[in-house]
């Protein structure tokens, strides 16, 4: 009796054949160009401090900073798909090519080369605080997000695809000698390296906190009432790495606003940080102009950071 039963297959479609040929041509082009200049692949160098941007949420498109070897080798864009347990988010990276390689890759319809193809097969869970150290670039439409989730769910559970999506995913992959296997293995290893490097990043060190804002308002006011002098009346001073500037933050109780002054050690106005941005995890932003800035105290409760024109976070040290 036969041990192996016949497998019946539908012939591949013309669309799938055309997709495969187009992808293989792009892959051949990529290999030729990549082989040209090994020295260009990445340069070891200054890594800097990770930025702090708005808190992550499903539907965002974010860009990783070049703070590690893998992340310096190319810009890495990801789509935030959904929140997961343990304060994590399921994210999927965008691919390098214009054509989806496999059924796990979705052509997004966007024109920008960075975000044309979404690699749902390579989706991983990332801690929220790692994602916060990435730049928010754009938001997906609700349709984009639902389509991405549908493809991911189909990969994991075989739930099927909504009509029309079948033409926007890549052709099936099964042969062990298919060059797409090499591509998949390489991208999988690359993303492993990204996660390994980013999850070791120091997190939260970029944020500066104002102690008199950390306590809940009612407890703070009770404590203040019991004291002879209002603690919050003492302005907080911070030095700035690689700069002569001193940042002085004072609290105006009348309108509950924190006022920033940038000055020298001799208390003279200092314009060195003009055009830098004060940013909070909640997404509030204000720009330092003429040595000054102001922000509502409530926005600063979870801390703030100051970024320069290049998007680098300045390192502050409390002086009092």
């Amino acid at each position: 009796m036969s041990k192996l039963k016949n497998i019946r297959r539908d012939p591949p479609t013309k669309h799938q054949e055309a997709q495969l040929v187009a992808w293989l041509n792009e892959w051949a082009l990529y290999l030729e160009l990549y082989a040209i200049d090994a020295a260009t692949r990445e340069k070891e160098g200054w890594a800097g401090t990770a930025p702090v941007d708005v808190i992550p949420a499903a539907g965002q498109i974010r860009l990783f900073p070049p703070v590690s070897t893998a992340l310096r080798s190319r810009p890495v864009y990801v789509a935030v798909l959904q929140s997961e347990h343990d304060n994590c988010f399921l994210v999927a990276p965008y691919g390098r090519f214009a054509i989806p390689a496999t059924p796990g890759e979705l052509s997004t319809g966007r024109e920008c080369a960075a975000v044309r193809v979404l690699c749902l097969w390579n989706a991983r869970a990332l801690p929220a605080d790692v994602l916060r150290s990435t730049w928010l670039v754009d938001d997906m439409t609700s349709l984009e997000l639902s389509e991405a989730i549908a493809v991911h769910r189909n990969l994991k559970k075989g739930t099927g695809l909504p009509e029309g999506l079948g033409l926007r995913i890549g052709p099936p992959l099964s042969h062990p000698a298919d060059p797409r296997q090499i591509y998949i293995n390489r991208e999988d290893a690359f993303w492993d390296a990204v996660l390994s490097e980013t999850c070791n990043l120091p997190r939260g060190l970029s944020l500066t906190y104002l102690p008199w804002l950390e306590e809940p308002r009612d407890r703070r006011e009770m404590r203040i009432a019991a004291e002879e002098g209002a603690v919050y009346a003492v302005a907080k001073r911070f030095s700035v790495d690689n700069s002569d500037a001193v940042i002085v933050v004072s609290f105006d109780d009348e309108d509950r606003t924190c006022r920033f002054r940038v000055q020298t050690a001799e208390d003279e106005p200092c314009a060195e940080l003009d055009a830098c941005r004060i940013e909070t995890p909640g997404g509030e932003v204000c720009t330092i102009e003429d040595c000054r800035a102001a922000m509502k105290a409530d926005h600063l409760r979870e801390g703030f950071c100051i970024t320069d024109l290049a998007g680098r976070t300045l390192v502050l040290h409390p002086l009092n």
């Binding site: 340069k43 160098g45 200054w46 800097g48 930025p51 860009l63 990783f64 900073p65 070049p66 703070v67 310096r72 810009p75 960075a114 730049w135 928010l136 670039v137 754009d138 690689n242 290049a310 998007g311 680098r312």
Partner: peptide, 17 residues
């Protein structure tokens, strides 16, 4: 935000180093 790749690019370099 849409040009955030400039952040990626310029963050590679500390201009004083």
């Amino acid at each position: 935000r849409g040009k955030a790749y400039k952040n990626w690019l310029l963050s590679r370099a500390n201009e004083d180093e």
